[in-house]
Design a protein around this nucleic acid. Structure first.
Lengths: 141, 141
DNA sequence: TATTGTTATACTCTATAACTATA
DNA sequence: TATAGTTATAGAGTATAACAATA
């Protein structure tokens, strides 16, 4: 890669990632709103407090209270008392919530898979390596 | 690429694109709100009517009226009469709006470039090809 | 009569400030 | 006194329904 082409690569990679992210987001069934789904994915890995969720999602704690309340009303998460500190609350996913996460992620992967079908083995191998590189780039810093 | 690994590739590629898109979106200066910027980019290429913009952005025409009004108030776009049909309005970008588009896209590319700096020539060459493939994938259908 | 765009009204998500319970 | 979470209130974006101007 010669140096003058780096700006073009940066631009094209950014555009490609943004467009694919946009397509993936729109094609899904949208069982819950985007901001709710993002929280659902986080608590599907480990229970978190509203404050921790608010920080990670970059919203205020009152907004997170509202989002969590919506998810509780929908039966997708539950509020549990914190074992050590009675001021705190732990938001945990329910079986129904786990089901929504699993189904939605499967739908998104399905879209991606359909759009990879037409590629030949060489291209797929190249994208395999590219995916690992991009995941590193995204995780960096 | 053997067939059983395709689901993993689809999952990793989707995650990588979504995470990079998210990083790019958050790192920017945010001169205007996301929905406004999206409209600004569209009219920076060619003037469009509010209805055409609403369809492309997948929002209602009243919402687009509101968004366009905000951009007009900020001096970033202008409403022009349609030459053929006096019911219609053409939303055009102003020099100030064009400046915002140029600066914001440059910032986003800058983030992407910084995060490509650490890669070697082989990886960059691979990503060059991957970017073209992903742009095709995103454009498909 | 159909179409384009705006205005009227209501709902949702967001934020800041104030409040309650606990540390 | 400080912290975690919720509630109160207001601002901005969205939608559907109703309206004005033009085709």
């Amino acid at each position: 890669m010669t140096e003058p082409l780096l700006p073009d690569l940066a631009n094209d990679l950014r555009l490609a990632c943004q467009r694919i992210a946009r397509r993936v987001r729109f094609e899904g069934t949208q069982q819950v709103a985007p901001h709710q789904f993002s929280v659902l994915v986080r608590v599907s890995k480990t229970p978190l407090t509203p404050t921790a969720l608010a920080e990670r999602e970059r919203v205020s704690t009152p907004s997170m209270t509202r989002t969590v309340t919506g998810l509780v009303d929908a039966g997708l998460v539950s509020r549990e008392p914190h074992p050590d500190d009675r001021r705190q609350v732990l938001v945990s996913i329910t079986p129904a919530g786990q089901r929504v996460v699993t189904e939605t992620l499967a739908e998104r992967d399905s879209w991606m898979m359909q759009h990879l079908q037409g590629l030949d083995a060489d291209d797929l191998a190249l994208l395999r390596r590219a995916a690992d590189l991009l995941l590193e780039v995204a995780a960096h810093e």
